[in-house]
Design a protein around this nucleic acid. Structure first.
Lengths: 142, 142
DNA sequence: ATTGACCTTAGAGTCAACTCTAAGCTTATA
DNA sequence: TATAAGCTTAGAGTTGACTCTAAGGTCAAT
């Protein structure tokens, strides 16, 4: 049985984050001491590590919530449900990659066009390009 | 002279966003009607379009703020200042790209490993991989 | 017995960039 | 003249994932 700071050390989460995850139903301590201290057993630890792993991959807390409900009763959930969540995340990642590549491209073009030297910016080609506004849109949402 | 909704139409920003940008010092109306209505002249419009272009490229409002201070007095700023901002943004974008590529890779591996079928998730290889926790970390910050 | 490290809670604060609301003027059109 | 569309402001709400604070209780070691 681990105390919260021990679980924190083990998972690399902070105690604050663990409590935060508990509030959002991702993690819980199956026991409490008389004084109210959280105590985590083996199953709790595995669940916390599952959450950490999923988080590291980039799943949102909402995604992880879904994955956890599958996890607690695998027999009543299908592989398809799991791949759906994963595919959806991949779609998001791909969309973001597309956006970032476009930003990268534009920024590289801007940098190549400018001398970058100590001369004053009166004829800076980056500034001119921003004035001209003929740069393609790279950003969709925040 | 354009009213706020006309500037909105012209730039593709909303009137709300224009006021928000004003509050943050990015845009302003050089005139007001007696009733307090904002009126934008040619220079205001060019500035608003500059902001929009920079925003589309992916610069933060903070970045844009810096670019605008260079813009209003180009002679006392160097090309290097401009490229520094641009390079810094590119560095950010590259870091994020790296992170996302790693996420993409992991997600693709997971998807390839799982049948994705209607069978129950008892032996789902995605779930197993998440349990095992041997997936490399892809995420650094939110 | 006292220190100091650790634990508890509810709730507030942070970040970025909006987005919206309410209450009340103003202006253009029918 | 009445109605609707558009403008004003201050300020609150949104999103996601934390992050921190205050005020206090607990525990191990000296």
């Amino acid at each position: 049985m681990l105390k919260i700071s021990e679980l924190a050390a083990k998972t690399g989460l902070t105690a604050h984050t663990i409590r935060f995850y508990e509030k959002h139903g991702l993690i819980s301590a199956s026991e409490r001491s008389e004084a109210g201290y959280r105590y985590y057993n083996e199953a709790d630890i595995r669940r916390a590590e599952f959450v950490k792993t999923a988080r590291n991959i980039g799943f949102s807390l909402e995604d992880i919530s879904q994955l956890l409900s599958i996890r607690v009763d695998k027999t009543s959930h299908s592989c398809q449900e799991v791949t759906d969540i994963t595919q959806h995340k991949l779609d998001e990642v791909n969309a973001k990659l597309e956006e970032l590549r476009s930003m990268q491209n534009t920024l590289q073009i801007l940098l190549k066009s400018c001398c970058g030297g100590p001369e004053n910016a009166t004829h800076c080609s980056i500034m001119e390009a921003l004035e001209a506004g003929d740069l393609k849109k790279t950003r969709s949402a925040a």
